[in-house]
Amino acid sequence: MRKALLALAITGVALLGTATPALAHNVLISSDPADSASLATGPAKVTLTFDQYVQDADVNQIAVTGPDGNQWAEGPVTVENNVISAPLRPLGPAGKYTVGYRILSADGHPVSGEIPFTLTKAGTGTPAKVDAAKASGAPAADASATSSPSGSTGIPIWVWIAGAVVLLAIGLTVALRTGREPSQEKTKQ
């Protein structure tokens, strides 16, 4: 019986150890402009830094929506290890701007969020054209609303569940086979 419990405990530890990577989504640790910052002049680009590397994929997006609802991010999104950035057009009206982002996490799942900042003095820039924003794949201002597991290019959850079931079956098989004592088998013969 002790061998069976030991095998079951080892199987449980193995299951927990393999499930950990599925829970390791990237976390935003800093941004430029900073969260809720007040700026007199608009930045030339948006830079987001995460706790883990970001997969360099075509699905990574950054959008900057102004107080007038127009898009201000323009150009390709670049990824360097755990830092993602996108150039901005010179900003226009004063007010609240929202940086919306959606990135492909190190574990293959999408991570999205928003960072607000305020432009205190109006700039002279003009917004990006709607067609240009759509062509660059810019997310809507509410990037978190577009997050869905079906759009993920990561490992589906059923793979983790199937792996857990297989490991559990192996553990139980080993426990049952090693749990028999030789003296019991000799008395049955």
Rank of each mutant, 00 (worst) to 15 (best):
Val99Glu: 09
Gln71Leu: 00
Pro76Gly: 10
Thr118Phe: 09
Val46Pro: 10
Lys3Ala: 07
Ser36Arg: 15
Ala122Pro: 13
Asp58Ala: 15
Ile155Arg: 04
His109Cys: 02
Asn81Tyr: 07
Ser144Arg: 10
Gly108Lys: 00
Pro33Ser: 04
Pro116Phe: 08
Pro139Gln: 01
Ala133Leu: 00
Ser152Val: 06
Ser147Trp: 06
Trp158Cys: 02
Ala135Thr: 11
Ala106Asp: 10
Gly125Thr: 09
Ala164Gln: 13
Asp32Ala: 13
Ala94Cys: 11
Lys129Tyr: 01
Asp56Pro: 09
Phe50Met: 08
Leu88Phe: 02
Pro87Thr: 02
Glu114Asp: 13
Pro116Tyr: 04
Ala44Arg: 12
Pro67Asn: 11
Leu5Tyr: 13
Tyr97His: 05
Gly12Leu: 14
Thr78Ser: 13
Ser152Asn: 07
Lys129Pro: 02
Gly69Met: 10
Gly151Thr: 03
Gly137Ser: 04
Gln52Leu: 03
Ala34Leu: 04
Ala40Thr: 14
Ala7Gln: 00
Met1Phe: 07
Gly100Ala: 15
Pro156His: 00
Pro90Ser: 12
Gly92Arg: 10
Gly100Thr: 05
Gly137Cys: 02
Lys45Ala: 15
Asp58His: 08
Pro93Ser: 15
Ala164His: 07
Pro33Glu: 03
Leu6Met: 12
Ser183Pro: 01
Lys3Tyr: 09
Val166Gly: 07
Ala73Ser: 15
Leu172Pro: 00
Asp58Ser: 15
Ile62Arg: 00
Thr146Gly: 14
Gly17Cys: 09
Gly123Asp: 10
Ser152Leu: 06
Ser147Asn: 08
Gly100Asn: 07
Gly179Met: 03
Gly75Val: 01
Lys3Cys: 05
Ile115Tyr: 04
Met1Ser: 12
Lys188Gln: 12
Ala94His: 11
Ala24Leu: 14
Ala175Gly: 15
Thr49Lys: 13
Asp142Gly: 07
Lys96Gly: 02
Lys3Gly: 14
Ala132Ser: 13
Thr120Gln: 00
Lys45Met: 12
Val27Tyr: 02
Val77Leu: 10
Leu168Ala: 15
Asp107Ala: 11
Ala122His: 07
Thr146Asp: 15
Ile103Leu: 14
Ala14Phe: 10
Leu28Gln: 02
Arg102Asn: 14
Ala57Met: 04
Lys121Gln: 13
Leu39Thr: 08
Ile157Ser: 12
Ile84Met: 11
Met1Gly: 09
Lys129Ser: 13
Gly42Val: 04
Ser147Gly: 04
Leu15Glu: 09
Arg177Gly: 06
Ala140Glu: 13
Ala37Ser: 15
Gly100Leu: 03
Ala44Val: 09
Thr41Lys: 11
Gln184Ala: 06
Ser36Trp: 08
